[in-house]
Simulated assay, not measured.
Amino acid sequence: MAQRTAVVTGASSGIGAASARALAADGWNVVIGARRTDRIEALAAEVGGTAIPLDVTDQESVDAFCSRVETCDLLLNNAGGAFGTASIAEADVDQWQAMYDVNVLGTLRVTKALLPKLVASGDGQVITIGSIAAREPYKGGGGYNAAKHAVAALTRVLRLELLGQPVRVSEIDPGMVETEFSLVRFDGDAEKAAKVYEGVTPMTAEDIAEAVRWVASRPRHVNIDQILMLATAQTSAQSVHREL
């Protein structure tokens, strides 16, 4: 049986990198894409995969990336991010635009481009990394909430539209995970980012990667539609028990 190919976006760090490692360890041929080429090249060398530069906000980059993917059995839509925590009244429209472009349109661009190859595989699968922000709104999260709600809608509509075709569609929504996510959200402010996880044992990128690996390993007659993953100390987006 030929080795199956998994494509992972946003694979230069965090959940994307951890998922690439987990999938490779499970026997997948992994194609990893991200903007930071030095990181994905090192990761590809580590897992025996292929690194291809990818900016999901740039259609030409997406087209060039997907043209180099010969076959695709699994697409992990992981590229995304949050920028800022401003209120609606003080919203930075450019930040909202950036969040919509990377989370929503980025997911759309890559999924649309690889969908014919996923269908042609005869047993394709799309797994999208969403967020608890797609399930409940919270103060200061307006732009990210809006983007991730849209990603969830896109994923669920795709599931409806592909009914009867050989492609499964899954959504994994993590809560608090300690990665570079908060560092990016707070524009590189390490002190602010650290406070997000203060007094809490958050999930790790590897925890989410294990869920990705498990979902990807289900038999073709099983579709894991949605998973919500939270740290034990977290019961909702902003309900967190801290031991300080």
Rank of each mutant, 00 (worst) to 15 (best):
T111A: 12
G81E: 01
D92A: 15
F186A: 00
A24M: 07
N223L: 14
A113L: 09
V31K: 04
R135V: 04
W28E: 08
E46V: 00
A133Q: 14
G14W: 00
A193S: 03
A133C: 14
I40V: 09
V167I: 02
E191Q: 13
T201P: 07
M176D: 12
A98T: 07
A147N: 12
R39N: 13
G48V: 07
G33H: 07
T204N: 14
S87V: 09
E180M: 00
A20W: 01
K148A: 09
L162A: 09
A89F: 12
I172C: 15
V30I: 08
T50L: 03
Q59A: 13
G175C: 10
R109P: 06
A82C: 11
A86F: 05
T204D: 13
A120W: 03
N145F: 07
M229I: 13
Q95I: 07
Q238R: 12
E178M: 12
Y138V: 08
A134E: 06
E41L: 09
S19C: 03
A34K: 05
V69S: 00
Q97W: 12
E171G: 15
V167W: 09
D26F: 13
R220C: 08
E46D: 04
A134Y: 03
D26I: 01
Q125F: 02
R135A: 05
R159H: 11
E60S: 06
G122E: 03
V184G: 08
Q97N: 06
L114A: 09
A42Q: 02
N223H: 03
R218Y: 14
V102C: 11
T111Y: 05
D189E: 06
D101W: 12
D38F: 08
W28A: 14
G106D: 11
V93T: 07
A133K: 01
